[in-house]
Design a protein around this nucleic acid. Structure first.
Lengths: 223, 223
DNA sequence: CCCAGACGGAACGTCTCGTTCCGGTTATGC
DNA sequence: GCATAACCGGAACGAGACGTTCCGTCTGGG
């Protein structure tokens, strides 16, 4: 613990003139920043917060020194990655809402969340220093709720499943995918089908009550 | 790396006269051995092979020295724990076969595997030094296959699910349970119900092929 | 009462990892 | 072209985590 509280160097890579005339990055530096973000996203998704900085650096074809020039601390890098993943996740929900037929909405939402490993992983990811509890989930929950409602109305989703159930399915499929999938084969797709079938109508109501959003948020933000 | 290859001190705790007149343990020592095994089972189940020996020791109310007097190496302790968990798992399968109606067999098997956290976890556990590939799974697979066949015959299980699908469900539910459950509440039971519903008849056949036992064994024994 | 055998837990050596530092390199404005 | 501010890579440092060892003390059971 030496520095802390240094400017997070937020990914101002969103093109020039971001806020206060911070001289734009040199071109090569900007390219590297992009690579770092991608590498960090993937590595954190694969190994969690414990992933060594050196792995991220080498994956980005960069020295560790370069990482620390952009992000004063590992925590800062992690935060940046998580925030961008959450945003991407919200976009996915909105796209589904806009593009997909109500009856297929939940199912397609889950499929899309799973198709990019890093997104859903990072969205619910929690760093050791237990940031604000469940911020990630609470931001997306309303969107998922809308998707769920539509599919229920369309009669393709069991009326007795809740948003939190969908999130649990997401977590479960993600864990199977992490376990089995390789770049060349994705056995988890079969499990995904089975799990989604469990959400379809035609089964006795579950005997155990659903988790509330708050409960689930608390769980996700600590474990 | 200094010793290695020392006698594993197999849990000869199976009462006196186990093999070659190894003087029986002093009573207090035997009690401690029991506590060590239980603690190690739980701790390894919770944290994986990376769990510090000191945690196991303190959970067993014992000094680390005592651990090393019984098991020359962390690896030896782990091996002993895993082997006993596998055996318990086989017993569960046999009990289900003997006690449960065919129609409920798979479902009850999954429920029982999940009800004791350490068992299924350890059964598919893999130490870093990648022991014999998938030995654990291959031992139980035939038993699960019998259970699956019975339930299919009874018409309560989709004819298109395979043994490997059941194992994946087991893994998935386990991961959710690890995430959510506490001594006082088990939200994963609801997810378990949903997941099992996905295995019931009345759905279109999955479009992706099942994993073979060999493939799954390979996956489990490395990740 | 004695002591082989058991016990606890401090100490040791190793290894991992976050972070720092600095000599060399390169984009960019003049 | 040139000067130079920004960059870059990656060795090195220090802290901490862990497996394992060691040794002084305690105790079950003959």
């Amino acid at each position: 613990m030496t520095r802390r509280s240094a400017p997070p160097v937020t990914a101002a890579a969103t093109r020039p003139g971001s806020h206060k005339e911070t001289r734009p990055l040199r071109r090569d530096a900007e390219v590297n920043l992009g690579r770092i973000l991608v590498a960090a996203r993937d590595v954190f998704a694969e190994q969690g917060y414990d992933a060594p900085m050196e792995i991220i650096a080498s994956r980005a074809d960069v020295g560790v020194g370069t990482l620390y020039r952009r992000f004063p601390t590992k925590a800062d890098l992690f935060t940046a990655v998580v925030e961008s993943a959450r945003q991407r996740n919200r976009e996915i929900a909105e796209e589904v809402l806009a593009e997909v037929a109500p009856g297929e909405a939940v199912f397609e939402f889950v499929r899309r969340c799973i198709s990019v490993p890093s997104v859903w992983r990072a969205t619910t990811a929690a760093p050791p220093w237990g940031s604000k509890r469940g911020a990630g989930l609470k931001q997306i929950a309303p969107l998922i709720a809308t998707i769920v409602d539509r599919s229920k109305a369309a009669g393709t989703l069991r009326p007795d499943v809740e948003v939190t159930d969908v999130v649990m399915v997401l977590k479960a499929v993600r864990s199977i995918a992490d376990l089995c999938d390789t770049p060349s084969a994705r056995p988890s797709l079969r499990f995904l089908e089975l799990a989604l079938d469990g959400l379809r109508p035609g089964h006795a109501a579950p005997t155990h009550p659903p988790l509330s959003i708050e409960q689930l948020a608390r769980i996700l933000s600590q474990g």
